[in-house]
Deep mutational scan, measured.
Amino acid sequence: MAAGGDHGSPDSYRSPLASRYASPEMCFVFSDRYKFRTWRQLWLWLAEAEQTLGLPITDEQIQEMKSNLENIDFKMAAEEEKRLRHDVMAHVHTFGHCCPKAAGIIHLGATSCYVGDNTDLIILRNALDLLLPKLARVISRLADFAKERASLPTLGFTHFQPAQLTTVGKRCCLWIQDLCMDLQNLKRVRDDLRFRGVKGTTGTQASFLQLFEGDDHKVEQLDKMVTEKAGFKRAFIITGQTYTRKVDIEVLSVLASLGASVHKICTDIRLLANLKEMEEPFEKQQIGSSAMPYKRNPMRSERCCSLARHLMTLVMDPLQTASVQWFERTLDDSANRRICLAEAFLTADTILNTLQNISEGLVVYPKVIERRIRQELPFMATENIIMAMVKAGGSRQDCHEKIRVLSQQAASVVKQEGGDNDLIERIQVDAYFSPIHSQLDHLLDPSSFTGRASQQVQRFLEEEVYPLLKPYESVMKVKAELCL
C-alpha cells in the first residue's frame, strides 16, 4: 500500500493539533497551500530580480507567473513527485505547466533550498508574528487579574506546605514575570531571523556568478533584492546548502521555554482548584465526569500541561538535527523538520489560546482563602504575639514557653481530632496574655502579614508589564474561544 493518505478522510490519521486544537490561522501558515504558494512567490521574486539585473526574462513571463501564483494543481504535483521522487522539481514542473512561456526560467540558477529553506524562514517569521500578540493578550488578562487582587491576602506555599502570606495578585505576578520573559525572547528570536537568500547549491553562489558572467556586484544585488522582497532586513552571508540548523534550535528553545512557563502556571491553577481557592472557567453544560456528576475538573489547565510537556520535548529534535548536518548538509534534517517545526508552533498556539481562555474567566473564592488563612495564621502570628507581650512588660522566655504549650495543644486538636485551630481562643482565655487581649485582632490582621506584596504588584505592572504590552494595544480586544 502506498504511503500517505487522504487526510480529510475519517479513515486516515490526522494530527489532533490540526484537527482538534490549533487555530485556523496557525494551521494555514503550515498548510501545503501556504507552503507551495510561497515557493511560487519566491520563484517570481527571483525572476523579477534577475530581470532587473539584466537576464533575458520578459515582462510577459513575469506576468504569467504572477497570474498563476494561486493556480496550484495539487493532484498534478503529487503525481509528479511520485514520478520524480523530488518535491521541488515536482512543483517546478507543475508551475511550468500553467506558465508555459515562463517554464524555462522558473528556478533559474537556484537549488531546492532556495524555495525550501527560504519558505521555512518566512513561515517561522509569520508563525512567530501570530504567537506574539496571543502571548501579549494572556499577559494582559493576567495583569488585569493581578491588579484587581493585588491586596487580597492568601496563604503562600513553599514545598506545598503553608508559608508566609502573600497576595493573590502577587502570586499571579510570578506567572506574568515568566511570560514577559517569554514574550521578550519570542520577539528577540523573531527579529534575529535572517533570510537564507540566493546562495546556490553549497552556499557559494557559483551558479549565479556564472549567470551574471562573473559580476560579483550583481550577485550581491540579486541576494539583497530577493531578501528585501521577502520582507527581511538581512540575509546570511555564510550558508551551506541550507541555512544553519542552529536557527531551528533557537526558535524551538524559546517555544519550549514558553511551554515550561505555561505548565507551571496551569499546575498552580490545578492545585488551587483542589484547594477550592480558584477555578478555571466551567461552562453551564460542561460535564466533569461521566460517573461523578459533582466533579469540576480543571480540564483546560490539564490540557495545557499535557501539550506543554510535548512542546518542551520537541527542542531535542533540532538539537540532534543540527549535530548531524555533515559538511554542507545531509538530508537527516528533512523529514524531522517537516514534523517538529509545525508541531512546535501548533502546540504553542494551542496552549496560548487555551491559557487566554482560562485567564479571561478565572474565578476566585475569597471566603475559602480566608478560612485557610484562619487555619494557619495563628501559628504564624506567634512571633508577633511574643513581641507584643514583651512590649507590655512580659518575659520573652516565659511567653515563648506559654505559646509553645498552647500551640501544641491547638495542633493536637487540628491533627488528632480534625478540629479547627483554636490557638487564639486559648490565648484569649489565658490570664497571662490579658495585657494584649485587646491587640489580638490587630495582630491577626492578614494584611499585616503580606509585606509589600501589593506595592510590588503595582510597581511591576507599571514599570515592566504595561510598557512591554504597549506595541500590542491594537490587538488586545480579541477574545479566545474554545470549541473543545
Rank of each mutant, 00 (worst) to 15 (best):
residue 443 L to E: 01
residue 284 K to T: 10
residue 225 M to S: 05
residue 287 I to G: 03
residue 300 R to H: 14
residue 181 M to H: 11
residue 255 L to E: 01
residue 288 G to W: 01
residue 478 V to K: 10
residue 166 T to R: 02
residue 12 S to R: 15
residue 103 A to H: 06
residue 204 T to E: 02
residue 81 E to F: 00
residue 398 D to L: 11
residue 454 S to Q: 09
residue 310 H to T: 11
residue 484 L to S: 14
residue 24 P to G: 12
residue 226 V to C: 11
residue 438 S to H: 15
residue 407 S to D: 00
residue 41 Q to V: 06
residue 113 C to M: 06
residue 405 V to M: 04
residue 330 T to W: 01
residue 245 R to T: 03
residue 74 F to T: 07
residue 75 K to G: 09
residue 166 T to W: 00
residue 480 A to D: 14
residue 290 S to P: 04
residue 457 V to S: 05
residue 224 K to E: 11
residue 238 I to A: 01
residue 392 A to V: 14
residue 339 I to G: 07
residue 301 S to Y: 01
residue 66 K to C: 07
residue 396 R to I: 04
residue 41 Q to K: 12
residue 392 A to G: 15
residue 85 R to M: 08
residue 56 P to G: 05
residue 387 M to R: 10
residue 139 I to K: 06
residue 47 A to Q: 12
residue 425 E to P: 08
residue 446 P to A: 04
residue 435 P to V: 11
residue 368 V to G: 04
residue 67 S to L: 06
residue 420 D to P: 09
residue 58 T to H: 01
residue 260 A to N: 00
residue 6 D to T: 10
residue 383 E to C: 06
residue 53 L to Q: 12
residue 400 H to Q: 02
residue 73 D to W: 07
residue 270 R to I: 09
residue 19 S to C: 15
residue 215 D to E: 14
residue 264 K to C: 05
residue 225 M to G: 05
residue 413 V to S: 12
residue 224 K to V: 09
residue 194 R to E: 10
residue 258 L to R: 03
residue 475 V to P: 15
residue 329 R to K: 08
residue 118 N to T: 15
residue 341 L to S: 14
residue 172 C to R: 05
residue 447 S to E: 12
residue 51 Q to M: 07
residue 230 A to V: 09
residue 207 S to A: 08
residue 154 T to C: 06
residue 364 V to R: 04
residue 407 S to W: 00
residue 446 P to E: 02
residue 480 A to F: 15
residue 161 Q to L: 01
residue 266 C to I: 09
residue 131 L to A: 10
residue 311 L to V: 07
residue 337 R to V: 02
residue 139 I to T: 15
residue 390 V to Y: 11
residue 46 L to N: 13
residue 200 G to V: 00
residue 316 M to E: 04
residue 12 S to I: 15
residue 345 F to W: 02
residue 257 S to G: 13
residue 318 P to A: 05
residue 285 Q to G: 07
residue 454 S to K: 14
residue 213 E to M: 05
residue 412 S to Y: 11
residue 387 M to E: 01
residue 454 S to P: 13
residue 420 D to Q: 12
residue 469 L to D: 04
residue 41 Q to R: 15
residue 244 T to I: 02
residue 136 A to T: 14
residue 213 E to Y: 12
residue 389 M to E: 08
residue 480 A to L: 13
residue 65 M to T: 04
residue 267 T to A: 08
residue 382 T to L: 05
residue 253 S to H: 08
residue 263 H to M: 05
residue 390 V to A: 12
residue 37 R to I: 14
residue 26 M to T: 09
residue 233 K to A: 06
residue 109 G to R: 01
residue 472 Y to A: 14
residue 136 A to I: 15
residue 111 T to D: 03
residue 244 T to F: 05
residue 124 L to T: 07
residue 358 I to P: 03
residue 343 E to I: 02
residue 252 L to F: 11
residue 428 Q to K: 13
residue 374 R to S: 06
residue 341 L to I: 09
residue 163 A to D: 02
residue 302 E to T: 14
residue 214 G to R: 09
residue 229 K to Q: 07
residue 348 A to Q: 03
residue 415 K to R: 09
residue 388 A to K: 03
residue 222 L to Y: 00
residue 150 A to W: 08
residue 3 A to H: 14
residue 439 Q to F: 07
residue 417 E to V: 08
residue 433 F to I: 06
residue 128 L to S: 13
residue 291 A to P: 01
residue 123 I to G: 08
residue 11 D to K: 13
residue 475 V to L: 13
residue 287 I to L: 08
residue 358 I to Q: 13
residue 265 I to Q: 14
residue 174 L to T: 12
residue 166 T to V: 01
